[in-house]
Every structure is written in C-alpha cells, then in structure tokens.
C-alpha cells in the first residue's frame, strides 16, 4: 500500500512540474552562486564615481566567497521552495475532498504522511544534486578545485537542513484544515526555527549550524564538528512526522 501511495506522490511531482521547477531553480541557483561571487566585486568596482579608495577596499573574490554564496542562495531559495510547494500537500487533499476518497479505501494514514514526505525528500535530493553539479563545476572553473568529498558532505548537510523544513511544511499541512492555515503554520514554524537558530546558547545545535559545518568541510578547514546539530535536526524531523501522523490519525475528514 505504501508503494502505491509513494508511486502516486512521485507521479504527482512529475505531472505537476514540481520536480522540474525545484530542479531547475536549484540548478540555476547553483550555477549563478559562483558567478555572483566572482563578478560582484568587478561590478562594484565598475560603478562610476565610486569614492576614492573604496574600489581598492573591495577584496578579490575567493573560493570561500563562492561556497558561502552557494550555501546562502541554496538554503534560502530551497527553504522557500520547500515551504511553498509542500505546506499544502495534506491540507489541500482535505480541502478538495481527495483525502476522503483515499481514506475510505484500506489506507494507513501514517503511510499517507510518510509517502508525501518521502516524495518531497526525493525531489529535494534531486534538486540539491542538480545544484551541486552546477555549483561545483562553476566554482572549480572560476576559482580553484575543492574537495569533492567535502562538497558532497556539504550538500548532504544542506539536504538534511532542507528536510527539516520539508517536515515543518508537512506537519503544518497535517495540522491545518485549509491551505491558508497551513501556510500560517508553516511560516510560523520557519520563523520559530530561525529565531531559535539565532540564539547564541542554542544555535550550535540547531539545523542552521549544519551549513557552517558543511562550508568548513568543503573548504578543507578542520571544523568543529556539529554532530549535535545533525542529531537535533534528525530528532526534529522524527518529532514533526510523528506529530503530523498522530494528528492525521485522529482527524475527522
């Protein structure tokens, strides 16, 4: 039964162009990040009437800027895409009546939640893979080679980071009865995680710390490992999926 549900979800990702849009947007983001890092200083220096000395103060771009730009852009666009595309996946089915059509058949509600999450996760992995190919290629081309293993680890951590927000979106969707409410819950969850991530005493174990860890590894810097952030991220995912499933189990459709 899970296979049938997952197949339907994957089919939906393709038919509704969700997979295509995520892959293309992240591929382009991966592509332009090294370009922006490389040419932003050039563009700034070419501004007419730039105050004397300022042009000299603009540093030459390095591979560090390229990776930083890549992480910043992918995480921002990625999280927004994930929230926007997945915050309605369950709420929409409840609202349109397709959930009722599904749940009168011998279907397990936990399997419904997990199939939607797994389909979203596969889209994210595909999108990040597209971004990684573009980002790595252009970084090597415009700057210098960096460790492939390190860059892969960075992208793995970005995936985990995005999966946290996918779980936020799916949980918001399970708790809400309409897409509007789901959006409110999802952006509330996003804001909460961002606020918690900015608190110094807790930031090192929040999902955002994964990005710093990945950046350092990809650049060959010996970093302070953030295993705590990885564990907390996985726990957040598990907690959100468990809550979403429990809520959906009890809900009257």
């Amino acid at each position: 039964m899970f296979r049938v549900l997952l197949r339907k979800e994957l089919f939906e990702q393709i038919r509704t162009s969700r997979l295509f849009i995520v892959a293309v947007v992240l591929f382009i983001t991966g592509l332009i990040s090294p370009l922006l890092a490389k040419y932003t200083p050039v563009i700034l220096r070419s501004i007419p009437d730039l105050p004397a000395g300022l042009a000299g103060a603009i540093p030459d771009p390095t591979v560090v800027d390229s990776v930083a730009q890549y992480i910043k852009n992918i995480s921002q666009f990625g999280v927004l895409l994930v929230i926007l595309f997945y915050m309605g996946v369950i709420a929409q089915e409840k609202e349109r009546g397709t959930a009722a059509m599904m749940l009168v058949k011998p279907v397990n509600r936990t399997a419904v939640v997990l199939s939607k999450w797994l389909a979203g996760a596969l889209v994210i992995v595909a999108g990040i893979a597209a971004a990684a190919v573009a980002g790595y290629g252009y970084t090597v081309y415009l700057f210098k080679p960096i460790s492939i293993a390190g860059f892969l680890w960075l992208n793995f951590l970005i995936c985990v980071f995005m999966l946290v927000y996918l779980s936020v979106a799916i949980a918001a969707s399970a708790f809400a009865r309409s897409q509007g409410t789901a959006a409110l819950y999802a952006f509330g969850g996003l804001a909460l995680l961002l606020i918690l991530g900015s608190l110094p005493w807790i930031s090192k174990v929040m999902p955002g710390a994964l990005l710093d860890w990945g950046a350092a590894i990809s650049l060959g810097i010996i970093p302070e490992a953030r295993w705590g952030a990885l564990v907390v991220s996985i726990l957040i995912i598990v907690f959100l999926l468990f809550s979403a499933s429990s809520k959906f189990q009890k809900e009257e459709i």
Binding site: M1, V4, R7, K8, F11, E12, R15, T16, R96, G97, T98, A100, M101, M102, V104, K105, P106, V107
Partner: peptide, 28 residues
Amino acid sequence: IGVLPEEPAFYTWMTPREYLRDYAGPLF
C-alpha cells in the same frame, strides 16, 4: 466496501485509466 461520496474528488492531473489502474485498484 465501495464508497461514492456526494461530490467525488480526484487528482485533476490524472486520467481515469491511471486513477483506476494505478491508484484505486492497487489500493485494493
């Protein structure tokens, strides 16, 4: 049991054949 709600709702991107062959049928 087979259930027909008052206003049956479907995935608009599917075709009837896909809905029956790849989704509703396999769920049973």
